[in-house]
Design a binder for these strands. Structure first.
Length: 923
RNA sequence: GCGCAUGUGGCGUAAUUGGUAGCCGCGCCAGACUUAGGAUCUGGUGGCGUAAGCCGUGGGGGUUCGAGUCCCUUCAUGCGCACCA
């Protein structure tokens, strides 16, 4: 029998489907293992060869765990809401649902060809009302909760209302947008509207006025992780800052828990570090500076409390609420001019424009330690969104303050012994303090870190300020002025937002005539007819952002058809959380933060039993494209081969990699590729046209997209799977290069030929395996088991090749050996494994086999290496039979021809046995 | 600027973690077979040298009997954060 990948793969894919081989159910007698891929956004371009990399890895791991007897949950679904489908809808008028369904079908077709062991009965789509019902449900739960800092968890908002009505804000320690203070009487006398507005300050999902990233081109608001360097990640359009009333999630309340949780999970240090940076914890102090002549003080945040004696001025962010209160009539005109200037700059322009700008407010504040009066300035180098939006400036020890002070000629007081601040500031947090003696506090002679502690202690005691931890992490902005997303389960009554009752979910996305904003500038849902409650109250017009649907999808897979709950107690307590999560690193500060937040919230509610959703996370590398080029001689239709191109004046042109093989151009295919090349002429080298190449992003415009379907068609899914793993370490980014695939394909054929002799007869027999064959097999068992546990799949493929070569050359046909070999290969190449498993007489499927265990006895080496050293220097190494006695080794060492060179008649004193291989003989 | 990775043949990589550097594959060279094919099989392939041998894991230094692996330093590349007080 010849190896026919098409027939084999078709047969087994059908078998698995017909027999529900990969359907998973709760089985209390088996240990669970949950393997998850980051579900894809089904784009119109379909899958390219880079997408399945992580899926193949997770598939191998799932199959391996299953063979080890675990009950493996391995589901797949689609992150179906998103901008591209909507943009396409705007351009073509086609409903995004149609586009999405088409794309999903295409993805499914492509995925099926690769032979994954997904339990498709658990498939979910985020745009499915039965799914987004639970996204809306979680939103309502957040609306009805507040974060209690004392219990350090989310609590029902009703219990906060209770506290307010009994004792006002007294004793309340809750996460909020702004600190509030009122008595029980004041609360009880508030109108419904006032009460609601107070509660909004505490809700975990809340409507708030925030500075948002507004993208005029996309007509929507974007989250911080959707913006990079002042432009939108999707589309690259400019983004500006705008004050808007938006739905937000109080992620910041969870900052410390999100940080602490990182210690308990098995992620890479790089990824944890990225999240730590994003959360951006900094310990410092808040301090109050009294304003001269006003009953007002400015609150600032600093991590350098020790530098208080060097404060020579203060700076407010232009958006700071202190600005209005502090600008004097004499300075008003100038300040307004400056604020106007700033307003017209986008964040991007602010970033690019590094030159120092600012304006004096006219007011002065008092340094609480020195009693000196210092001017208060306004400048855009201070950010409104961080800390309190106001700073104390210490030009001697902060480079930004320094630049500002030099520009406006403000004084600079050095505070650290021996530092030179004539040219630049001294920012390092080290050295001995000077110039830091006040009436009540003397820091002189202290180390910086002691001075920080001393100052903090002092200001707390004196009531000047308090120790405070600040986070960079901001609340997530949750509204999008878009059509293709989850509708908010919210309606407005007298302008106050209320959530729907849980029994009214899902609130379905309504139909609209166009997917554009309304003429009055409202979001597309403003076009929906009768978009209001039965009582006639209007619904919220914004929809939820992309990360809403992906924040708890891993929970839904546990119990995807449950109408009563997001996930049942039983399913949650069995599957608990994801044991292995594989996906790209691009979600580090988006999805992976939001999911952890969402999960912690549900944990606080008692809905889920694990605080962290993803125990272990592997980031697979990106597969880049490998582009090919041809070189056209300028103003001609003649193309010159790569190595001769320097002799001519040429233009480099991308050529479709699918008509190039091993960098050799298929000239006929090239001529028929595009009409303008029909009559192309070629200058060849050695009768071939050699193309140039480069590593670039895989994209249509570079003509370097390789479709997995084509690889499956010509080599088979098993070869594709093995080759993707063989390409290099999973975590590393690497270019796709189809050139090497023949080697892997040859291996598959060699494996086949181990079972079928040249005359196509099955040659598996019941003979007892030789010691040699057993050694080869058990070496492989040990290696592959170790490799899979360590996600080193590329080296496993090499190990398979070695073993198959060894077994081939010893003409091993023992069923005992070959059966174990198939089980080992099955996770990597499931189709051929299944085929050979059956061909060699097994009646069950290879998926239900048992992973073999290595017997170390077969691996004992016949020889051992000894290193012989003398006076601490290694002189030579030698090999002796395993089990040779110490005395024998000494004798052999002395008899070794090399020994005469250095021994000089001395005899060995002792032998040092080092673990593993090496024995040192000290003479 | 701060932080995190990574540097090994012509190329992708390996070295079970401090023990013979370059496994496996691509490519290349030679040979076999052949109804000449982009098929299959066998052997070779780090560099220099006729050879014995010498040199080799970005560079420099160190620890060690022994370093690709550990430490210091420096360079290069990639990624993340970035006027965060």
């Amino acid at each position: 029998m010849e190896y026919n990948h098409k027939e084999i793969e078709r047969r087994w894919q059908k078998y698995w489907k017909d027999n529900n081989t990969y359907k998973t159910d709760i089985n209390k007698y088996k240990k669970k293992f949950y393997v998850l891929d980051m579900f894809p956004y089904p784009s119109g371009a379909g899958l390219h060869v880079g997408h399945p990399l992580g899926y193949i890895a997770s598939d191998i791991y799932s199959r391996y765990k299953r063979l080890q007897g675990f009950n493996v949950l391995h589901p797949m679904g689609y992150d179906a809401y998103g901008l591209p489908a909507e943009q396409y809808a705007i351009q073509t008028g086609q409903h995004p649902e149609i586009t999405t369904v088409n794309n999903i079908n295409r993805y499914r077709e492509q995925l099926d060809k690769i032979g994954f062991c997904y339990d498709w009965s658990r498939e979910i789509k985020t745009c499915d009302p039965e799914y987004y019902k639970w996204t809306q449900w979680a939103f309502i739960k957040m609306f009805k909760s507040y974060y209690d800092n004392d219990c350090d968890k989310a609590m029902p908002i009703d219990s906060l209302v209770e506290k307010f009505s009994v004792s006002g804000t007294e004793g309340v320690n809750a996460a909020c947008s702004e600190e509030m203070s009122f008595t029980a009487d004041e609360w009880n006398n508030m109108s419904e509207k006032e009460k609601q507005s107070v509660l909004m300050n505490y809700r975990i999902s809340y409507l708030g006025n925030t500075m948002v990233n507004w993208c005029p081109k996309l007509g929507t608001v974007l989250a911080n992780d959707e913006v990079s360097e002042g432009v939108s990640i999707r589309g690259g359009y400019p983004v500006e800052q705008k004050m808007m009333r938006q739905w937000c999630l109080r992620v910041s309340a969870y900052a410390q828990r999100l940080l602490d949780g990182l210690e308990t999970i098995d992620w890479t240090d790089a990824l944890k570090e990225t999240q730590r940076n994003w959360i951006g914890r900094s310990e410092g102090a808040e301090m109050n500076f009294k304003v001269v002549g006003k009953d007002l003080s400015i609150e600032i945040f600093t991590t350098r409390a020790d530098t208080i004696f060097g404060v020579t001025f203060m700076v407010l962010a232009p958006e700071s609420e202190y600005v209005d209160k502090l600008v004097t009539s004499g300075q008003k005109e100038e300040v307004d001019k400056y604020l106007e200037e700033i307003k017209h700059k986008t964040e991007r322009e602010r970033l690019i424009d590094k030159h120092v700008s600012g304006v004096f407010s006219g007011s002065y504040a008092v340094n609480p330690l020195t009693g000196k009066e210092i001017p208060v300035w306004i400048s855009d180098y201070v950010l409104a969104g961080y800390g309190t939006g106001a700073i104390m400036a210490v030009p001697a020890h902060d480079s930004r303050d320094y630049a500002f002070a030099r520009h406006f000629n403000l004084p600079v007081i050095p505070l650290i012994e021996g530092c030179d601040v004539s040219e630049e500031s001294f920012d390092a947090k080290e050295g001995i303090m000077i110039n830091s003696k006040g009436a009540e506090l003397d820091l002189n002679g202290m180390e910086v870190k002691d001075a920080i502690a001393a100052t903090k202690k002092f200001i707390e005691e004196k009531g000047i300020g308090k120790v405070k931890v600040n986070y960079r992490l901001r609340d997530a902005i949750f509204s999008r002025q878009r059509y293709w997303g989850e509708p908010f389960p919210v309606y407005y009554k007298d302008g106050i937002p209320y959530t729907l009752d849980e029994s009214q979910l899902p609130l379905r996305l309504p139909e609209v005539d166009k997917f554009l904003p309304t003429e009055t500038g409202e979001p597309p849902l403003g076009r929906a007819k009768n978009w209001n409650t039965k009582e006639g109250y209007p619904y919220e017009l914004c929809t939820m952002p992309g990360f809403a649907g992906s924040s708890a999808y891993y929970l839904r897979y546990m119990d995807p058809h449950n109408n009563e709950a997001l996930v049942s107690k039983e399913a949650d307590e069995y599957w608990r959380n994801v044991d292995l999560y594989i996906g790209g690193t691009e979600h580090a500060t988006g999805h992976l933060i939001y999911s952890r937040f969402w999960n912690k919230f549900l944990y606080d509610l008692g809905v889920v039993c694990e605080e962290e959703p993803f125990k272990k996370l592997i980031n697979q590398g990106m597969i880049q494209g490998r582009s090919n080029f041809v070189y056209r001689i300028k103003d001609t239709n003649t193309f010159v081969s790569f190595n001769l191109r320097k002799e001519y004046d040429t233009t480099e042109i991308h050529v479709d990699v699918n008509i190039v093989n091993n960098d050799i151009l298929d000239i006929d295919k090239f001529r028929s590729w595009r009409p303008e090349f029909k009559d192309a002429e070629f200058i060849l080298e050695d009768g071939k046209y050699v193309c140039g190449w480069a590593v670039e992003k895989m994209s249509k415009s570079m003509f370097n997209v390789v479709n997995p379907d084509d690889i499956v068609e010509s080599y088979g899914a098993d070869t594709l799977r093995l080759y993707e793993m063989f390409l290099g370490p999973l975590e590393q980014s690497k270019p796709w290069d189809t050139n090497g695939i023949d080697g892997v394909n040859r291996f598959i054929k060699k494996l086949w030929n181990l079972f079928y002799s040249k005359n196509s007869e099955l040659c598996v027999n019941e003979e007892k395996p030789s010691a040699e064959a057993l050694k080869s097999l058990h070496k492989l068992i040990k290696k592959v088991t170790w490799d899979i546990e360590h996600f080193s799949f590329n080296t496993s493929v090499s190990a398979f090749m070695i073993c198959v070569n060894e077994l081939t050359s010893m003409k091993c046909c023992s069923k005992e050996i070959l059966s174990d070999l198939i089980i080992l290969i099955a996770p990597f190449a499931p189709h051929i494994a299944e085929e050979l498993w059956h061909a060699s007489g097994h009646t069950d499927t290879v998926c239900d086999a048992k992973w073999p265990v290595c017997n170390e006895d077969y691996l004992v080496e016949s020889t051992v290496t000894y290193a012989v050293s003398f006076n601490g220097k290694t002189r030579f190494s030698m090999q002796v039979a395993n089990g040779t006695s110490k005395e024998e080794v000494e004798k052999l060492a002395l008899e070794n021809p090399n020994s005469s060179k250095w021994i000089e008649g001395k005899s060995p004193k002792k032998i040092i046995v080092v673990p593993n291989k090496i024995v040192n003989i000290v003479i």
